[in-house]
Amino acid sequence: MLELRNIRKVYNPGTVRELCLFEGFSMNVPKGQFVSIVGSNGSGKTSLLNLLCGSIMPDAGQILISGRDITRMPEHRRLSRIGRIHQNPALGTCAGMTILENLSLADNKQKKMNLLPGTDKRQLQRYRDILSQLGLGLENMLSAKAGSLSGGQRQALAMTMSVMTPIDFLILDEHTAALDPKTSDTIMALTDRVVRERGLTALMVTHNLRYAVTYGDRLMMMHQGSVVMDKQGEEKRDTRLEDVLSVFTEISIELGN
């Protein structure tokens, strides 16, 4: 499904701050797999997601989706089949627009952008049904501005928007990190449900080791641009939080943290 081949990425090339993050990096993610990625700051987790989405371009190597080379495809074109949730809940929704308008925007994602009405009144009931599944009461607030919602509500709305149209990938970039512990648990459970129900291939970067162990079919730990732990299937199910924590502490000590 997703394949990264011999990726090389150098930041600030030719300067004293030159940093080679990836050198000959490869990875494979089969269709329908839910991958959790953990690692210290600067380990390359977010860069990996950015490479995949096209927010940054690799210096060498190939990125393939279902065998098709998308290495040079611009970010917005790739995102037609990718949903992405950022760490900051404000980034996934338009604050000055209503919930209805935000949902309509998302609903129009794969349609032609023309002068037809932006919101389709016949979809109101469908939108309410989708929102009521979140259990946050958003279904009665369609005309409220997204900016007036709490962080958790906004993140749930962003999640709803990203899976409104059929997608192949869900990319989660520390998407619970800015939320309080309880809201973060709610959003994480919601994420798991959405990924399972739709059979999505998902890549989740997280600093929460507990989530990485509890959720997903595969656990990867990254350190300085390479994978230092990769467990899937049986092996993943048998992994305990302590095992991950001990490896994590090891690499952190190495960094002098």
């Binding site: 611009p74 917005h76 404000a90 604050a95 925007l105 952008m113 009405p117 932006g118």
Partner: peptide, 28 residues
Amino acid sequence: LFLKTRLGLLLRAAGDNDKVVTLLARDK
């Protein structure tokens, strides 16, 4: 009327948060 069309909504989104436009697979 224009600001309520699909294109109009997208225009408002571009001013509000252009990251969303990219997420919607459009060239901002």
